[in-house]
Nucleic acid binder design. Sequence first.
DNA 1: TGATGTTTTATCGACATACGATAACTTCTA
DNA 2: TAGAAGTTATCGTATGTCGATAAAACATCA
Lengths: 272, 272
Amino acid sequence: MSTLETGKPPSDKEGAAGREKSADPLMVMSVEKAFRVLSAFGRQHQTMSLSQVASVAEMDLSSAQRFTHTLTKLGFLKKDRETKRFELSSKTLDLGYHFLRGNRLVDKAMPYLMHLSKETEETVNLTMPEDTEIIFVSRFLSRHVLNTDVIVGTRMPAFCTAPGIAMLSRLPEAEAVAIIDRSNLKAHTPSTTWRREDLLVKIRQSAQQGYATAFEEFYHGDASIAAAILDHRGRPEGAVNVAVSCSRYTHDEVVSRFSSLVIAAAHAISRV
Amino acid sequence: MSTLETGKPPSDKEGAAGREKSADPLMVMSVEKAFRVLSAFGRQHQTMSLSQVASVAEMDLSSAQRFTHTLTKLGFLKKDRETKRFELSSKTLDLGYHFLRGNRLVDKAMPYLMHLSKETEETVNLTMPEDTEIIFVSRFLSRHVLNTDVIVGTRMPAFCTAPGIAMLSRLPEAEAVAIIDRSNLKAHTPSTTWRREDLLVKIRQSAQQGYATAFEEFYHGDASIAAAILDHRGRPEGAVNVAVSCSRYTHDEVVSRFSSLVIAAAHAISRV
DNA sequence: TGATGTTTTATCGACATACGATAACTTCTA
DNA sequence: TAGAAGTTATCGTATGTCGATAAAACATCA
């Protein structure tokens, strides 16, 4: 965490108001609150009235009023004139759009992903690691299986996905173990590898093979094979994977057909 | 630059304190600044040092310091420990993800888009209107033409796209005209319909036919046909379109093959 | 290698900003 | 039609943010 923590004699008047803040003097709290409002919306709460926002985002009415007003003016929230309810607007896509369009990795991976997509005719993904999770940042759907459960921006636990294991296997083992240990390990399906020891075996094996596989470890019926993309210092910065339906391939077929392709793609992207 | 603004007061107003703000007492300016920092990043500025952020986002060093710090703590920016440069992180995808996952229209359109995609084997899109622009919110690529110029979150001018015209044609004409008039009309290609009068004709025609077409009006080689989706009050809230390569279809073929399909899809989505 | 300029990190007093209570108003409900 | 519930507007004031600047890290070059 931040290196500064010192300068404040703890015994002050500040306790009076109650809130013991993180006391980070560089932190602009209003920004945090604004995002608390925005992320209060989602599948559970597609639209909310002012007072709902206040209660879901855990702030008083006045704050909710100020922040919804601000975010509406900025275009991130839309307010229905009749129902007085708020919802996220399409402008929320802008940030992610800028990220995708500016990202080095996404950019350089694109042609290789396209090639892989045409060659395999199966679903191809680019993912990036974020602590214990992976995030889908690019996606080419197979023509047959149009799965809309996963879209760009979807997160999954690293430990039970092929891209996750592939990336973990390229970290110094201590780091990988640390991530595993702070993951919420559990069986998402009957086939999930979720025990610490088993995961370590899987990671070591993946390190050796250069690819990782996952068979119905998160979604029923899904098989996936992945290889990690390394940055200039050799650290994993992403993964490319091919996802297919279990019913159409055995484990061995997946490996024999796709392993060298995903490895080659990941390798090529790594050294562009 | 997006057109939404609080309406900048032309305050050449002096300024002991300088900033004569929009004087909206409910506006939390810190939030606006935070987004100014975030949207300073993009294709031009993939990574920036602190002082670059300050200059691009037009704020003093201290502010840049506070906001980059805040945004980094919140996870939206990443800082490279050695180069000390900032870049957007994959967390920026979260907001848009919540929008997509929570949005009624996107949700109900999905099965129809998938169906259309399989039936046509061409690229299918769902777009939403935002003032003078359209935004791509869902996208199924044709297996042959993997165009990565357009991704979810991409914006285009409404006036020179099929979805844009289709939606404009469902507005009361006065409103459509107002939008046209505040658009930045210009020829993006030699084929762009960009003159006010011609656009009005096109809009009226689209209103009659129930669909709109665009042939190389924005991208060279692109043909597109679209129909608007109406909300419960009959106002356009989106559009579905099929995009193909000009080289493979004549205008008439596009119309004869796809017009009834996109109209049917849009119609079905409208009344779910 | 040390001198000099540049960028980043840390600190702090001052005061404008955002806070939050509440009043005024509007919309539902019974 | 009264009364509740929710939304919008107002306002004095404590707080949190501002922005100048000091200290430290880093880069450049004689």
